[in-house]
């Protein structure tokens, strides 16, 4: 296990390094005119633009710039934003925005899990009956109708009906409710449909039929065997989903005016804000890789039959 963890950590480090280096180099291939707007071209002559770029450090060769990035990283300094929030330290920007995405994301994830898993169990338990049909209708609606439509519906109509604020206010807890529910809606559908599917698969397996025929109570079979085994394929996604809530939601944060991370990477790429893009890519890739790794470990904990490392020697053969 220890060797496996070390090996996976090494692989993760290599993956993150490749992602970061690739993005770093791709950013340097972007045309230099992306650093300037039309007005900038009117205001600045060629030499002024060159001086500006030199002061930003983007005219140095890419490897010198990468070295600078790594040495900053070693000191815990990810640089300052250059175009999206000129001169603001990147860590400050992320530090201000990430908590909103994180808290909304975690609340929505908890809601998705609670309601989604509950719905999935109900659908599997009452397969081909009303709860299953109702759950399927819900899942179909959420997945088939473009999210923009129901998100706007919730914002416009539900807030009007309840007299709630249309946008998020930090000091008014009631304004936190609809964004959280909106964020959770598709998650609920995802958990419900997958858990139902895995539970139905398990129900049809021989060991379940055997347990039932041996006289074990159905509830115990469902709880102790079917549900537990059906959860195994899902749990590996939990850590990644938890960690990546930090990335926020472009649409919902925009609709409810939540100052989170959603859309930050898109803005940074569009405005060629290299330090911000690099920091976000580093953050997301590290969280992604760590999430996958933790998912694997969690799967082992939930299902002892799964071995992460191949055992060696006779014991293994036995």
């Amino acid at each position: 296990m220890g060797a496996y963890v070390l090996k996976r950590l090494g692989q993760s480090l290599i993956t993150v390094s490749i992602v970061v280096l690739t993005v770093f180099l791709l950013l340097r291939l972007m045309p230099k005119n992306g650093y300037f707007t039309r007005e900038d071209y009117v205001n600045m002559d060629r030499d002024a633009r060159t001086a500006y770029l030199r002061n930003l450090g983007v005219l140095d060769d890419p490897f010198t710039q990468f070295g600078r990035f790594l040495s900053g990283l070693a000191r815990g300094d990810l640089g300052r934003s250059i175009t999206v929030y000129p001169r603001s330290p990147v860590l400050d920007v992320i530090g201000e925005k990430a908590p909103y995405s994180l808290w909304f994301g975690l609340a929505a994830l908890a809601l998705s899990m609670a309601l989604g898993l509950g719905l999935g169990i109900l659908m599997a338990r009452f397969k081909d009956r009303f709860p299953d049909g109702a759950g399927t209708v819900y899942v179909t609606i959420v997945r088939a109708i473009p999210s923009l439509i129901w998100l706007f519906f919730i914002q416009q109509w539900v807030t009007a009906l309840l007299g709630w604020p249309m946008v998020f206010y930090e000091d008014r807890p009631v304004s936190w409710v609809l964004p959280t529910i909106s964020l959770a809606l598709s998650g609920i559908a995802w958990y419900a449909i997958w858990l139902r599917r895995f539970m139905v698969d398990e129900e049809n397996k021989d060991y379940v039929k055997f347990a039932v025929s041996k006289g074990l109570p159905w509830k115990r079979v469902m709880r102790g065997h079917v549900l537990r085994n059906a959860l195994v394929p899902l749990v590996q996604y939990f850590p990644q989903q938890i960690l990546l809530t930090i990335a926020g939601s472009l649409l919902i944060e925009s609709i409810y005016s939540i100052p989170g991370m959603g859309g930050l990477l898109v803005s940074a790429i569009r405005q060629q804000d290299n330090p911000l893009v690099q920091a976000l890519v580093l953050l997301y890739s590290v969280l992604g890789v760590v999430g996958v790794f933790l998912g694997d470990l969690l799967m082992v904990l939930v299902d002892p039959r799964i071995k992460l490392a191949e055992s060696s020697g006779k014991g293994a053969a036995a």
Binding site: F36, E39, V42, N43, A48, Y52, R54
Partner: peptide, 26 residues
């Protein structure tokens, strides 16, 4: 970046000062 040519040419010596610095930096 909005420090325009018009403004630089408006005040005596300002454009030269800015261009010298730009040239040093570039």
């Amino acid at each position: 970046k909005n420090f325009s040519r018009d403004v630089r040419n408006l005040i005596a010596g300002l454009n030269g000062y800015y261009l010298d610095l730009s040239d040093v930096d570039s």
